[in-house]
């Protein structure tokens, strides 16, 4: 358990001391969302309909950008190899890194989302639903993305590759997330969607870290 907390602490410290890796995806998220109204034209009716989809797709892309660098610096300076070699279970290290990663990407985007929902004239029910959906959906995306990041360690243009590998896996989260927001905006109950997103999250928490640690071992084995 100590190693888990220590990894979270270490990664968070690193993020604070080198904020560019964290801030840049968030800025990207902001710009992408602001581009949609400019491309579509300023009519409130269309905004309402597309808000959920736009925010979700922007979150997806921003998550991919931040996940790309998740293991990179540790891989390049050899710290990752030491983590694999150390006596501590690798899965706890991976879990710690994932939690730290989610705190600085998924959670921040969830906290920012009501602001964007307001920009898209979403009703207050919808705003709550967007935030709840992102709260449940972003950890799933970070977990799935880490598998792609671990598999593409040390490859040239790994960023595009991660997108190709991981984006298809994000489709269930995207569908459920947007459906949940649509249900909320339409005034119907969205508990079912929330339970589904939660179930997906639990399954992914159970399985993805195992796949990620195995992938790290594979990538480091050459």
């Amino acid at each position: 358990m100590n190693i888990l907390l220590a990894t979270i602490r270490r990664d968070l410290l690193q993020h604070v001391r080198r904020p560019a890796d964290i801030v840049n995806p968030l800025v990207f998220f902001l710009i992408v969302i602001s581009l949609f109204p400019l491309g579509i034209g300023p009519s409130a009716g269309t905004f309402n309909e597309i808000a959920a989809g736009v925010i979700w797709v922007a979150v997806l892309l921003a998550t991919l950008l931040s996940i790309d660098v998740m293991f990179k610096s540790d891989y390049e300076d050899g710290a990752l190899e030491q983590m694999v070699l150390s006596k501590q279970p690798l899965i706890l290290v991976v879990l710690g890194k994932l939690i730290a990663q989610w705190l600085v990407s998924g959670l921040l985007m969830t906290l920012m989302s009501p602001l964007f929902a307001l920009m898209f004239f979403v009703s207050s029910d919808g705003i709550l639903a967007i935030a709840m959906a992102l709260l449940l959906g972003t950890p799933t995306m970070v977990l799935l993305g880490s598998i792609g990041a671990a598999l593409t360690l040390g490859l040239k243009n790994g960023g595009v590759l991660i997108a190709i590998l991981v984006l298809p896996l994000y489709i269930p989260v995207l569908i459920l997330g947007t459906a949940m927001v649509d249900a909320a905006v339409g005034g119907s109950s969205y508990t079912g969607h929330m339970l589904w997103l939660g179930a997906l999250l639990l399954v992914t928490i159970g399985l993805a870290p195992i796949a990620t640690q195995a992938s790290i071992r594979i990538s480091l084995s050459q």
Binding site: I147, L151, L165, L169, A211, A214, S215, I218, S219
Partner: peptide, 8 residues
Amino acid sequence: ATAMLVLV
């Protein structure tokens, strides 16, 4: 690595 991806 590819086998891992296929399994996921």
